[in-house]
């Protein structure tokens, strides 16, 4: 265990160092190519969406959420940097990236983002009601993972693989992500089909679903989660209903590998989301 921890910390340092070096040298070597792309590109969207989601269930906690909500999206690009921020629809979260290599059909980015939902003894969502079964567990915070993404196109598919380390979070773990997307253009509709998988290191997933000694009770034994996988399938459809207005609807299903339910705080390994709404694009 100590060797693993030391190895993880070393990997984190190496990743951070490599990314810094790569960004530094890449910026200089490609400065000439991007002189003409110096303009700041931005796009904001504001809308309202109905989201119905069921998260992987924590014991005793409400994992179902169904309500209308506001959507605020932002995309900002400057030189090789980009920031994508989503809220409200089903692929929420923010990503900060730097395009290290841009070639025809493939590329490599340095990326920073979160991959895991936080929760605490009140469950996933902001609530003042403590869940008795979760009472006494420590706060599981967002990871803030840094790593590399390799993108490539093959035929009609766009595929991405990501290797990230939770450099700025609490888990000291890493994860490997893979997904492939097929875009169908059906007249003015865009339909996106996406299939993906994650492989979480033990340290990463254990931070969320493991039980430390100081959290253990008579009903909640100490538990270590081993390396874990997850798989998902997503479908989204976008339609331009008027100038600046887009209708979107989507569905997503997600599943962890079966041993996740052996954790004393996990009741189910499935999750799913449906959403539909409109947004105004500025």
């Amino acid at each position: 265990m100590k060797i693993n921890t030391a190895l993880t910390k070393t990997m984190k340092k190496i990743t951070t160092l490599l990314l810094c070096c790569f960004c530094f040298f890449s910026t200089f070597s490609r400065a000439d190519e991007h002189l003409e792309k110096d303009e700041l590109l931005w796009q904001f969207s504001l809308g309202t969406f109905w989201v119905d989601s069921t998260m992987t269930q924590l014991v005793g906690a409400n994992s179902h959420f169904s309500a209308p909500g506001l959507l605020i999206d932002a995309k900002i690009e400057y030189k090789n940097f980009y920031l994508n921020s989503h809220s409200g629809d089903f692929y929420g979260g923010s990503d900060l990236g730097y395009q290290l290599v841009i070639e025809d059909g493939w590329g490599i980015d340095a990326i920073l983002g979160s991959y895991q939902q936080p929760f605490n003894e009140n469950g996933y969502y902001e609530s003042d009601d403590q869940v008795p079964e979760l009472a006494g567990i420590k706060e599981r915070e967002h990871d803030l993972s840094l790593g590399f993404a390799y993108y490539f196109n093959h035929g009609e598919f766009q595929t991405v693989t990501e290797l990230v380390f939770d450099v700025f979070g609490e888990s000291d773990g890493w994860l490997f992500h893979f997904d492939t997307t097929r875009n169908f253009e059906l007249r003015n509709w865009d339909v996106w089909l996406n299939i993906g998988a994650n492989y979480y290191s033990s340290a990463f997933i254990d931070y969320y679903y493991g039980i430390d000694a100081d959290e253990a009770t008579a009903f909640r034994p100490e538990y270590v989660v081993s390396n874990t996988s997850s798989f998902y399938l997503q479908l989204q459809a976008d339609y331009p209903i008027a100038q600046n207005w887009v209708f979107s609807a989507g569905a997503s299903g997600f599943i962890y590998s079966s041993h996740i339910v052996e954790s004393p705080i996990v009741h189910s390994r499935h999750a799913r989301v449906f959403f539909a709404g409109v947004k105004y694009v500025f």
Binding site: L41, W42, Q43, M55, T56, K75, E77, Y82, N84, H86, F90, Y91, G92, G93, D95, G97, Q99, D109, G113, S114, Y115, Q116, Q117, A149, Y151, Q158, V160, H177, D179, T181, W192, N194, G196, S230, Y232, Q234, P240, Q243, N244, W245, V246, S252, F254, A271, V273, V281
Partner: peptide, 17 residues
């Protein structure tokens, strides 16, 4: 012929859970 998005997403992030 007009279009909604000024920026076409180079990448599409799908992390949700």
């Amino acid at each position: 012929v007009n279009w909604v998005h000024k920026i076409k997403s180079k990448k599409r992030r799908w992390r949700i859970f």
